[in-house]
Design a protein around this nucleic acid. Sequence first.
DNA 1: ATCTTTGTACTGACTGGTCAGTATAAAGAT
DNA 2: ATCTTTATACTGACCAGTCAGTACAAAGAT
Lengths: 207, 207
Amino acid sequence: MSERSERTNGHSSERTARRGSRQDTRLKVFRSAVELIAELGYAATTVDAIAERAGVAKGTVFYNFGSKEGLFEALLEHSISKLAEALAAADTGESALDALDSVVLGQLRFFEEHGAFARVLLAEMWRTAWQEAVARLRRSALSVYANVLRRAAANGEIRADLDVETAATAVFGMVLTVAIERRALYPDRPIERTHATLAELLHGRIK
Amino acid sequence: MSERSERTNGHSSERTARRGSRQDTRLKVFRSAVELIAELGYAATTVDAIAERAGVAKGTVFYNFGSKEGLFEALLEHSISKLAEALAAADTGESALDALDSVVLGQLRFFEEHGAFARVLLAEMWRTAWQEAVARLRRSALSVYANVLRRAAANGEIRADLDVETAATAVFGMVLTVAIERRALYPDRPIERTHATLAELLHGRIK
DNA sequence: ATCTTTGTACTGACTGGTCAGTATAAAGAT
DNA sequence: ATCTTTATACTGACCAGTCAGTACAAAGAT
């Protein structure tokens, strides 16, 4: 979703010109919603609270998203797209295994910046109600891992018979869990250190 | 409905305390609660629904656990203990890395049997409201992984400078994620196959 | 033996508050 | 003109927690 349509606002006067623009309002609501839902969970988060934190009227939320569920679906859609973009952009490196390390780092960095979304994703990912969003996640984000692993298997960097789909989920879940732990427990630890630990784990018994 | 005809079944439950049916009631409520919360989440699950599925009156839930939150805390306590026992029991093997594989398998098997709890744990684990339960989880379950990894580091099976705490969380989160995916998406796949994939991933670039 | 009391486990109708969603009038923005 | 947002007020369903009462077993008491 989110056609980046900036709507040609005449010329100059760029910046946040469209003060009351719909896109702007939607983003404010997204930010507020993801923070609250990360803290309290979807069901315990009220639309009143979302609207208040976003600094908009309650009616605006319903005007823009139709319902609480509609808001949440749009939020998932929006955030999963961004995550998929970030992972795909990180898929670079000499060897496939270098690329794997790089994607792991990309995921860590994304969740460093969007920690609230990490929590929401972890909590809601397997709820049957949002199965469509999960399917999209598999197609767009997990497939980045699956492809890297497939490449590694194809040119002999790892066993050719590895189940890349399961392995992709495993790595994704591993990084997601660690990213959340880091934010919750060791917020000041440099991300590179966490990344190094994960890389060692994935590279196996290196001395 | 259903006049709980438990009555004096004579046998059932050891002589620990007369009127042993209270333990029975609590377990029925636990079972019902974990299933519903796995499906709907904590906040969206009503005490009415828990009581109905357990076949007890709503008042019984409050009589036994004081509040909805009290019920959930007792449930976490109960289940985390069982999980920790299962992991500790699986901590066996020639080398530390064999033990690691074994604990991973133990965790997979535990969540195979208690899939609903796996979902609840994943979703609620990092909610600040249950931080006490998370602390207990770290002490009792994650420490099994941390100890295995420490042993492996001590006798040179893996790098001595590995951050075992972070690695323990990583492995735990990886297995938890994959266990849930397996149940949701590939329930018929033998657990050994999933285990083999995780072992390969952990053992690194073996050809 | 029969009556009375006590403690434990449980029941389910009821209450008081909460919250998604609606309604509407008026104000900005383009 | 039309789209978007604001502010306020309202409705009705839903739900956590309460409470007066039931059931019943065991322990005195007579």
